[in-house]
Amino acid sequence: MTRLPHSILMFGVLLAAAVTSADEGASGDAEYTIEGKLAISPHQDNFTDILEATQILVDGGQHIGFLKDDYSFEIRNVVPGSYLVQVSHPLINFEPVRVDISSKGAKRARRVNNVQPHLNNHLPYPLKIKVLGLHNYFQQRETWSATDFIFHPMVWTMGLPVLLIMVLPKMMSAEDMAQTQREVQQMQNAARMPAVPELSEMMTSFLGQRPPQRGGASNTNNRNRNERIRHD
């Protein structure tokens, strides 16, 4: 199976609309030849089977043409009308062209537009149609790389603090550790908001007299305990 190359090669389809002498067909209609060329220079030919595997289909196979060595093709015995010329290769995507042959033999080529078929998007003579590259048949696997992790903002917001918490204690000595612990505890005490009254205190004060003493007692107990700790 041929592997798809990594670069997109640029191909162009050169279509030369030439008026050749009209031949009489069996039905009496004049018959003309559609001529064209693929613009592939020899050093660009990364595919070895373009000449073998390419088929020129007119109107879905009503007429068939083959490529010569110089990447040109001719399709004979075409009566006047409008035709869709598709160059078909399993790997390469060539742009289809609409070719109109009038009853007098004048040929013109235009871009295929199925929504507005009468639009005259002329392809200039001699023509160079824009390339379409290779058929992209496959989906890409989702890959992950290390950079995804390192540069992600969430990693910085959450991972960094975790690292700090883990790394900092190692860097400090034992005394510093104890001091920091005390500071942290103080911060916690301070952070406990005294302004907000305890709900239980409120309810008991509302309902009776005794609880405030108890609450006061417990408060003084706490205060004594804190003082004791501070003196350690």
Binding site: A26, L51, F66, L67, K68, D69, E74, R76, N77
Partner: peptide, 17 residues
């Protein structure tokens, strides 16, 4: 209608038609 005479190279390219 009409008969077409084609010659191919052994490589698969069309020689003449």
């Amino acid at each position: 209608d009409p008969p077409i005479l084609r010659s191919f190279h052994i490589s698969g390219a069309l020689h003449w038609e």
